[in-house]
């Protein structure tokens, strides 16, 4: 066909239409497609490949997470402290509002938008199954949160090594921080994903995520304060109150898994309860997201 196009009759024409070309190259399988979706969703979670406006919020929040640690590192190296002013786990707990804001701004971006603009149909008409789609979005959100929480921890760790604090202690604390960050990222992604997938309205999802995270945390803090008026090692009921919010749940679970790093050490049975609730929550949320897309696919 292309031979004809450049024949003597066509040469006089101004526009050279080379005609439709078929694609004979490789077609990748489901896993490669899944990977591509994770990568593009992760980029989108930081506004890459989207309009300038959508980069503002994630980059700003990442800066808010990173700048304070940069300052801490600067101070601790300059003033030669005896021990670091802040552990990684404490840092996560201090900046949980920023993490919650990031989740509230980006989870709806990843989940609600495809539902609202109905581009989900175009994904479902392609080889990926709806479960693959849901898991790819959740994985991308976990990675995005890991970058948000993990990056400052890495800087904190590097700073601690530069300030020549004890290597073993610092590595142990860094490890606790990373484990806490991973546990938190998975749980928050699951909760944020479920809320965002439930509604095509982005604003509603943003408000619901903030409400769930803030209300639950406030409730835990208040309950703990009531059950445990004097500071110190909390009683059993005050300990279980920590189940009520993702942040406190993860903090306790982390100190159970690594035997340290948190404010208090849970007993084995308490730790197992926290682990059980954690797994159950994540499983229910992931199942919910998947069930939601099953409904979308039918509709």
């Amino acid at each position: 066909m292309s031979d004809q196009q450049f024949g003597p009759q066509q040469r006089a024409g101004v526009i050279h239409d080379i005609g439709y070309r078929n694609y004979d190259g490789p077609r990748l399988g489901r896993f490669s497609i899944w990977q591509a979706l994770v990568v593009s969703s992760l980029r989108h979670a930081y506004g890459l490949g989207r309009s300038g406006k959508s980069k503002v919020m994630p980059i700003l929040l990442l800066a808010v997470m990173v700048v304070p640690v940069a300052i801490i590192v600067g101070i601790e190296t300059a003033l030669k402290f005896d021990k670091p002013p802040l552990t990684p786990v404490q840092y996560i707990s201090f900046l949980q509002a920023v993490i919650a804001l990031y989740l509230a701004s980006q989870a709806p971006q990843l989940f609600s938008c495809d539902l609202r603009y109905r581009s989900i149909v175009l994904y479902l008409a392609r080889p990926l199954r709806r479960t693959d789609y849901a898991l790819a979005k959740l994985t991308a959100l976990v990675f995005a949160l890991m970058i948000l929480i993990g990056l400052p921890l890495v800087i904190l760790y590097a700073g601690a090594l530069l300030a020549k604090f004890d290597f073993t202690d610092m590595s142990k604390e860094f490890l606790s921080g990373i484990v806490a960050a991973l546990l938190l990222s998975i749980l928050l992604a699951a909760i944020g994903g479920l809320i965002s997938a439930a509604t095509p309205r982005r604003g509603f999802a943003v408000a619901a995520i903030i409400a769930v995270l803030i209300v639950s945390f406030t409730a835990v803090v208040t309950t703990t304060a009531i059950l445990n008026p004097e500071a110190g090692d909390p009683g059993t009921s005050a300990r279980y109150a920590n189940l009520g919010s993702p942040f406190t749940l993860v903090e306790v679970l982390q100190s159970f898994i690594l035997r340290g790093g948190g404010a208090w050490k849970p007993t084995t049975s308490q730790g197992l309860v926290f682990a059980g609730v954690y797994v159950l929550l994540v499983a229910v949320c992931v199942w919910g997201v998947n069930a939601r897309y099953a409904k979308v696919a039918r509709g």
Binding site: Y23, G25, P26, R27, L28, G29, S32, I33, A36, L37, S40, G49, R50, S51, K53, S54, C113, D114, Y117, R118, S119, V121, L122, Y123, R126, P127, L128
Partner: peptide, 22 residues
Amino acid sequence: CLPPDVSATEFAVHLAQMSGLP
């Protein structure tokens, strides 16, 4: 079924990848 804040090129490239093209 088109998201408003993405260009046609990016969208088409992305969906081509979703169909398995490198």
